[in-house]
């Protein structure tokens, strides 16, 4: 079985977000980049499936410029067999999905996994677009995934609960916790990742329907107003009369 895991290369969740070039570019200065946390769940589940099913291979794919390679190597260290980097800035969801679909078509994967959304642009639509482009079912946000031959049983989180589904391979899933526990690469994994194949391919041309005009930061938060634990009623008064939220 062939599994494709698509990963994003995103700022660490603790990063301060700033922009440069007149608010048109992300300021990567001093920012640590990681595998998208949701993608990391997808990867961990793919590795578990590989470990339980002999002959399964896991390929990771990232759409990004050369500086995403350390992130891709980390995915290889976690246990993916090989990697593909589509050499382009991931400008919008449709662009990224189109690159994934083009690669997937050329290989024919049984399962295409990724995070439910990237934590930079939070679009949450790449899996659906890939599914539509490939004519496969797409499911998201998937919190449980069990394979049974050519069939899969999944749980999809919905507001206030979950939905249990059955679907035949191949399909696309956008994943989230608790589908698997994040895996931390061990020394052997890190060593072997250096020599695993990482193929660089050029992007296909996409006529993108979305263009960025500028970024904005939210207005600064005012100072917190403290209320004494001995005068909790004052809080209720403030919420009613000052904040007007009760």
């Amino acid at each position: 079985m062939k599994i494709l895991v698509c990963i994003s290369h995103v700022p660490d969740t603790t990063s301060k977000i700033n922009f440069t070039d007149n608010n048109t570019k992300f300021d990567g200065n001093g920012v640590q980049f990681i595998i998208g946390p949701y993608d990391d769940y997808a990867l961990a589940r793919a590795i578990e499936i590989k470990e339980a099913n002999a002959g399964t291979t896991v390929t990771v794919l990232n759409v990004g410029p050369a500086d995403t390679e350390p992130t891709i190597r980390k995915a290889l260290a976690i246990g993916a067999d090989d990697a593909v980097r589509v050499n382009a800035e991931p400008t919008d969801s449709f662009f990224v999905a189109k690159q994934i679909a083009e690669h997937a078509k050329s290989i024919g994967y049984d399962l295409i996994l990724m995070g439910r959304e990237s934590i930079d642009f939070n679009g949450g639509v790449v899996h659906g677009i890939v599914g539509e482009l490939l004519g496969m079912p797409s499911l998201s946000p998937v919190m449980k995934l069990e394979l049974d031959g050519t069939k899969a049983k999944l749980a999809r989180e919905i507001e206030g609960g979950k939905e249990l589904l059955e679907v035949n391979l191949p399909f696309v899933a956008g994943c989230q916790e608790p589908i698997a526990e994040w895996k931390i690469p061990n020394m052997r994994g890190i060593m072997s990742a250096r020599t695993k194949p990482l193929q660089v391919v050029e992007p296909v041309v996409v006529d993108s329907g979305v263009s960025l005009q500028k970024f904005e930061l939210p207005p600064a938060k005012g100072a917190v107003k403290m209320v004494s634990a001995d005068n909790v009623a004052e809080l209720v008064t403030l919420l009613k009369n000052e904040a007007k939220v009760l």
Partner: peptide, 11 residues
């Protein structure tokens, strides 16, 4: 975007 830490304006 950035999980509520920023906004973008897109055409």
């Amino acid at each position: 975007i950035y999980t509520g830490k920023a906004f973008s304006k897109v055409e």
